[in-house]
């Protein structure tokens, strides 16, 4: 298995505050890797750094053999790194159709086959194709955000908290779709607080705590780990 993305000892600061204190992890080609952690652990910061929206003060990020830290997002996207930002962030006044077209902005014109494929993945979007995205429900907006990222033909898809604020049934649907996307060969780096769902999907996972990686293992291992269960699944562990 080849390493697609390797993050090596990165440190990220917001002014004087260190958000990441030397985080290292790897994502192999074709994997789903989950980053877990509580609020403020540094998950989103890590992902923003990978997608180029933030710049590490130390350490490096290597993608497909190239060093990519410090490259702005609009150039990273041409390498196939597509980012679904936290909180969905669809363009509310644009229609679903226009949102999807924006996802393919890096191409001269959207790929019709990919467009069709996205609408097959999310039939709900086809029904609402002419509706302003702001009128969609939370789950539909999340679908649209993922669909928009897919329009950029990702090799590495960065998903930031796709389950945020959604009903459990919808979360399950979204994760099923992510699994489907992964099975088509797209590598996924997933940031989640919903540990049970994320680990059920992920090949491997990393647990972040206050800017450091404290635990790592395969999805099943982490799901079985007492500390993870106590911290993220809210289960009382008799010890």
């Amino acid at each position: 298995m080849t390493v697609l993305l390797s993050v090596e000892d990165i440190e990220v600061r917001y002014g004087a505050i260190k958000a990441l204190k030397g985080v290292s992890f790897e994502v192999n080609e074709g994997e789903v890797v989950a980053l877990l952690g509580a609020n403020g652990a540094g998950k989103t910061t890590t992902q923003k750094t990978v997608s180029g929206m933030m710049r590490p003060s130390l350490g490096q990020i290597v993608y497909d053999g190239y060093r990519i830290d410090g490259i702005p997002p609009h150039e990273l996207i041409t390498l196939g790194i597509c980012h679904v930002p936290e909180g969905r962030r669809v363009f509310p006044r644009m229609t679903v159709n226009e949102n999807l077209e924006m996802g393919a902005f890096r191409f001269k014109r959207p790929d019709a086959a990919v467009f069709e494929h996205v609408l097959e993945l999310f039939p709900r979007l086809r029904e609402r194709i002419k509706q302003p995205a702001g009128t969609l429900s939370g789950g539909e907006q999340q679908m649209l955000a993922i669909g928009r990222a897919l329009m950029g033909k990702p090799r590495l898809l960065l998903l930031d908290e796709p389950s945020m604020g959604l009903a459990p049934l919808i979360v399950k649907q979204i994760f099923d779709i992510v699994r489907g996307i992964n099975s088509e060969g797209v590598t996924v780096l997933l940031v989640e607080q919903n540990a049970s769902q994320a680990l059920a999907l992920a090949d491997r996972g990393y647990v972040l705590e206050t800017g450091e990686i404290v635990l790592t293992g395969t999805g099943a291992e982490l799901l079985a780990d007492d500390r993870v269960r106590a911290a993220y699944l809210g289960e009382e562990i008799a010890s």
Binding site: S51, M53, P72, P73, H74, I77, T78, C82, H83, V84, P85, R89, V90, F91, P92, R93, M94, E98, E101, M102, G103, F105, R106, R148, A149, G152
Partner: peptide, 24 residues
């Protein structure tokens, strides 16, 4: 044009515009 759509995207949500690959 593409540029016009990029402007619209930036006006609506700058972070999302960045995420879709617009050099804001």
């Amino acid at each position: 044009s593409r540029i016009g759509r990029a402007w619209a995207a930036i006006r609506e949500d700058e972070v999302a515009a960045q995420a879709t690959g617009i050099n804001t």
